[in-house]
Design a protein around this nucleic acid. Structure first.
Lengths: 395, 395
DNA sequence: CGATAATACTTTCACCCTGAACGGAAATAG
DNA sequence: CTATTTCCGTTCAGGGTGAAAGTATTATCG
């Protein structure tokens, strides 16, 4: 360990504290991080010099005595962009370094474009959305509807948007943007969003299941994403527990549900409608799906003992009325389970907001934040005063 | 971060290096840990003063120049005892601080004893096995055939030896021994053993499944045990994927297999015999078990993306001939899986040796080893020159 | 057998970082 | 205007580290 290590560690501690606790005085930082005032002062001075922090004199005169000068992250110093590329919609959110969303945008995915064209289109869209902040753009994170291997960023298992499996897509996207891009599974990002700002805000360990055209999953252990090497983690849809050893994903995904309804002579455009319909003939379908879902929930519970399981994706809305019963049955199967099953709080924006978090993490890492401190930033209430529906507006 | 932090960290680094790399010279330590020779010298001197290390002059004259003086852990400074309490046998292994086994013992479990009597019996057995080393006894770790919650050490789910669920058992055991005792699930310890010395020696992430009277599981991520709060992690036997939503454990455990054979009018004493028997009428039973096992293996693969899955427990021997086919079918189900399925290399001693590892970790922690360094100790080849069958001898 | 070279370890020293103590600055109370 | 309180910057001793110089030990060579 070099002599410079403690300095870097303390720097990271201070920076993380400012990022999580918003504007805060030097004294308060010292008090809450067990660092001596001298150390805090030195480090804050250095961070101010570097332009990472700014002094804000908004001190709400608590007691008598000298007024504390607060410091906060220099939010405008950079922006990040989180992108959620789905089979039907692309959602973008641009946020500053304080995780405050600046703009958002939702655009239908041009699913018929080939890989190069899609890359060009997406790059243009990102540039247009970031707008004048482009030169301050620190990082872009893109969630894709498929498995992403973190080693070589190979994308697989993306039946809903196969173009993104083409290695060209990422290469061209980065080329057009002129920046490196973070990539991950959209479910992982959705979990990251819910973990920071949504239903898993207070959970150490959480699982996200996105039930849409396919079945996706993300897992966080000790507030950090747990990705395997192949992006396979949590994909319990592969379990050969259906009839004749069929994978569960075939039962529980949108296409599976539609196929099952069609067997009964009922045709729907949208899998969620199968749940909304009151037709009694559909009861066995629903029951069938519910049993498969229970297997998957049980798998998630015994695999990770999560505190929260978040259900997201198109079909999850339709499942809301069944949540109570699901919880009950899950508890019957695994009485020791402490997991609660919730719907996604951020709705369709989980993915884009999670991508923002991932992008912020990269930006923060570049600013010198230690890996261990990343698990606590950005501050969970950054979205508090923020109009989420407005962000999702189609512009 | 206090000023003393780097010292402690470097101390831990040096100690860990000596523990993993056996007798080694100061220069080599410095070279391999990126610490300066001065720092290594200072720390080694301190460790020698404390009696934690000893100088061994066994330098095999490599080149000309001053002969390197090697240092090694003062192995005889303490001993630890690992105990694996099973439904039918209790296995003990006593080892020194260098993880060198000193004695071992296997004794039938007096399953009819009540909790207080069992505690007394076990304490006596441990004391008798440790013998003269008793005053140097650093730590005892006991693996139990049930779920152990790490918070309050509550034991549950131990149908094969229900006495151990009684809180008295642990309390009295510690009282009779006069030492605190580490407790955990026997599958967790078995995994720890295989992870250090056995089939998962080179794996970062591994899963252990013990198939015996019940179905147990242990999970390691990044070479560290992953335990939930309730000891539920990896227990995919709960999956309601059997007929009519029955839990898989009912199919795959010893009692389940016997019951299934009995339905066919065939009676066995031992579930493993069902697999050994050539009776063609048993084919459906085997197939049925294999399908359930496949679901569990798939769950383990997609849950953790392990590099290795180790099968242990009484029935696993009987499955050895099927391993190749199992691997093939698993690969069909999850092509991206990189997991290989292996039998336990340490055989019935996995659990006791894993308990030794757990006890050593506690001992090392007391010596000042940082949590991160624990994942690399003790040295994996500590058992190399060791006669395992002799350790398992009934004495 | 002594000189030399090579290697292992130790000592010295300059430097970095921290916490404790002190002192200046700013705001309120009287 | 002075006293008091609180916040913040500065000084200083202490502990810790790496680079470099110094010492010890061994093999090789003339």
């Amino acid at each position: 360990m070099e002599s410079r290590a403690p300095r870097a560690a303390n720097r990271s501690t201070v920076l993380a504290h400012v990022l999580t606790h918003g504007p805060v005085s030097r004294t308060a930082i010292g008090h809450e991080t067990d660092l001596s005032p001298a150390t805090v002062s030195r480090i804050v001075e250095q961070l101010l010099d570097e332009g990472l922090l700014t002094e804000t004199d908004g001190a709400p005169t608590t007691a008598r005595g000298r007024r504390a000068t607060q410091v906060a992250i220099a939010a405008g110093r950079g922006v990040v962009c989180g992108v959620d590329v789905g089979g039907s919609n692309v959602r973008l959110v641009v946020a500053d370094l304080a995780a405050e969303p600046l703009t958002g945008r939702t655009v239908p995915t041009p699913a018929d474009y080939d890989a190069p064209r899609l890359a060009q289109w997406l790059a243009d869209l990102i540039v247009a959305t970031v707008g004048a902040d482009r030169e301050r753009l620190d990082c872009v994170a893109v969630g894709l509807p498929g498995a992403v291997r973190q080693g070589d960023r190979a994308v697989s298992n993306a039946p809903n948007l196969p173009q993104v499996e083409d290695p060209q897509f990422l290469r061209l996207l980065e080329k057009h943007l002129g920046t490196a891009v973070e990539v991950d599974n959209d479910s992982n990002y959705a979990l990251l969003g819910e973990l920071r700002f949504g239903a898993a805000r207070d959970a150490q360990t959480a699982v996200m299941l996105t039930i849409g055209a396919g079945l996706g999953a993300g897992v966080a252990i000790d507030r950090r994403l747990f990705r395997g090497r192949s992006g396979l983690v949590g994909e319990f849809g592969h379990l050969p527990a259906g009839p004749l050893g069929a994978p569960l994903e075939r039962i529980i995904s949108g296409s599976g549900i539609l196929a099952r309804a069609r067997e009964l002579g009922l045709s729907f455009d949208n899998a969620a409608d199968v749940f909304r319909s009151a037709d009694p003939r559909l009861a066995p379908v629903r029951q069938y799906v519910e049993q498969a879902l229970l297997v998957i929930l049980t798998a998630a519970v015994v695999a990770y003992e999560p505190e929260v399981i978040v259900l997201g994706g198109g079909i999850s809305h339709a499942l809301t009325p069944d949540l109570v019963r699901l919880r009950g049955r899950l508890h019957e199967i695994v009485p020791a389970a402490e997991a609660t099953v919730h719907g996604a709080e951020l709705g369709d924006l989980s993915g884009a907001l999670g991508a923002v978090v991932a992008a912020l993490h990269t930006a923060y890492r570049r600013l010198g934040l230690a890996e261990a401190d990343l698990a606590r930033v950005p501050q969970p209430d950054a979205l508090a005063g923020c109009d989420l529906p407005a962000l999702a507006d189609r512009a």
